[in-house]
Amino acid sequence: MSNEDLPAPKVQLTNSEWRQRLTAEEFVVLRQAGTERPFTGEYTDTKQPGVYECRACGAEIFRSTEKFESHCGWPSFFDPASSSAVILREDKSLGMRRVEVLCSTCHSHLGHVFEGEGYPTPTDQRYCINSISLRLVPADS
């Protein structure tokens, strides 16, 4: 799916408004498709129950019940919270062919999804997501 083919985001802000809402590091990843360094994100090894929201707009993206340890350096999930939570788009950057994961609500970059890697998950998919793209809302204790 190209930018022209994407449905309009429900949350639309100017770059200036995004810069006011996000930290400089968050802006680079979420709005400019950057990547945080592996094994540095706050949710890489988190096992706390809860819901992972898009840090830019607060939309529910993943649940802790679909998080698994892939040892890749970023939080990994085998399925989004709902089929409409994310948009998948072809990414040919860096001389590779990958599938980018975007928040369907604000079109912020979350990470990439990979298939067929052999992880013992129900979907055989690994949503490799930047911690800085997410905010964990812990489950009620």
Results as ranks from 00 to 15, higher is better:
Ser2Asp: 06
Asn3Ala: 15
Asp5Gly: 02
Asp5Glu: 15
Leu6Ala: 08
Leu6Thr: 09
Pro7Ile: 01
Ala8Phe: 07
Val11Tyr: 06
Gln12Arg: 15
Gln12Pro: 03
Leu13Glu: 13
Ser16Met: 02
Glu17His: 04
Arg19Lys: 14
Gln20Cys: 13
Gln20Phe: 09
Arg21Lys: 10
Thr23Ile: 12
Glu25His: 04
Glu25Met: 01
Glu26Ile: 15
Val28Thr: 08
Val28Tyr: 13
Val28Glu: 14
Gln32Trp: 13
Phe39Glu: 14
Gly41Met: 12
Gly41Tyr: 14
Thr44Asn: 15
Thr44Met: 03
Thr46Ile: 09
Thr46Trp: 06
Pro49Phe: 07
Pro49Thr: 01
Val51Thr: 12
Val51Asn: 14
Tyr52Thr: 00
Glu53Trp: 06
Cys54Asn: 01
Ala56Met: 06
Cys57Phe: 07
Ile61Pro: 07
Thr65Leu: 07
Lys67His: 05
Ser70Gly: 11
Pro75Lys: 02
Ser76Leu: 04
Ser76Asn: 00
Phe77Tyr: 05
Phe78Ala: 00
Phe78Thr: 09
Asp79Val: 01
Asp79Gly: 06
Pro80Glu: 08
Ala81Trp: 15
Ser82Leu: 12
Ser82Thr: 15
Ser83Asp: 14
Leu88Lys: 05
Arg89Asp: 11
Lys92Phe: 03
Ser93Tyr: 10
Ser93Gly: 07
Leu94His: 14
Gly95Val: 02
Arg97Ser: 10
Glu100Val: 00
Glu100Thr: 05
Leu102Gly: 11
Ser104Thr: 14
Thr105Asn: 10
His109Val: 13
His109Trp: 13
Leu110Arg: 03
Gly111Ser: 06
His112Gln: 10
His112Glu: 01
Val113Leu: 05
Phe114Gln: 05
Glu117Cys: 01
Tyr119Arg: 00
Tyr119Glu: 05
Gln125Val: 02
Gln125Gly: 00
Ile129Ser: 02
Ser133Lys: 01
Leu134Asp: 04
Arg135Lys: 14
Arg135Gly: 08
Leu136Ala: 13
Val137His: 11
Ala139Asp: 14
Ala139Leu: 14
